[in-house]
């Protein structure tokens, strides 16, 4: 678990090291914002999963809406 977190942090650090210097040099402010928002979402999601935190699951949300529709369709056609 600890190792996974360290690896995830390292991976994100590598991403930042890979992209951010160029953006800073070229003064891409908007891009930097977008970049760090995405990084933050990614970090929360991945660390949350490693620690098994109860994060909202978008896919489950979609499923909750769509599955009844499908069941209705299935009942209609069989």
């Amino acid at each position: 678990m600890a190792l996974s977190i360290v690896l995830v942090l390292l991976a994100f650090a590598a991403m930042i090291a890979y992209e951010v210097p160029r953006m800073l040099r070229e003064k891409m402010r908007r891009e930097l914002w977008a970049f760090f928002v995405l990084i933050a979402i990614g970090l929360v999601l991945s660390i949350g999963q490693i620690l098994k935190l109860p994060l909202p699951n978008v896919t489950r949300g979609i499923e909750a809406v769509v599955r009844p529709v499908y069941k209705a369709l299935e009942a209609m056609l069989t």
Partner: peptide, 17 residues
């Protein structure tokens, strides 16, 4: 080159894992 080095670091991290 510095991007290349970062990429290399990434690979090494993966390999270590």
């Amino acid at each position: 080159p510095q991007r290349l080095i970062t990429a290399l670091v990434l690979v090494i991290v993966l390999l270590a894992a």
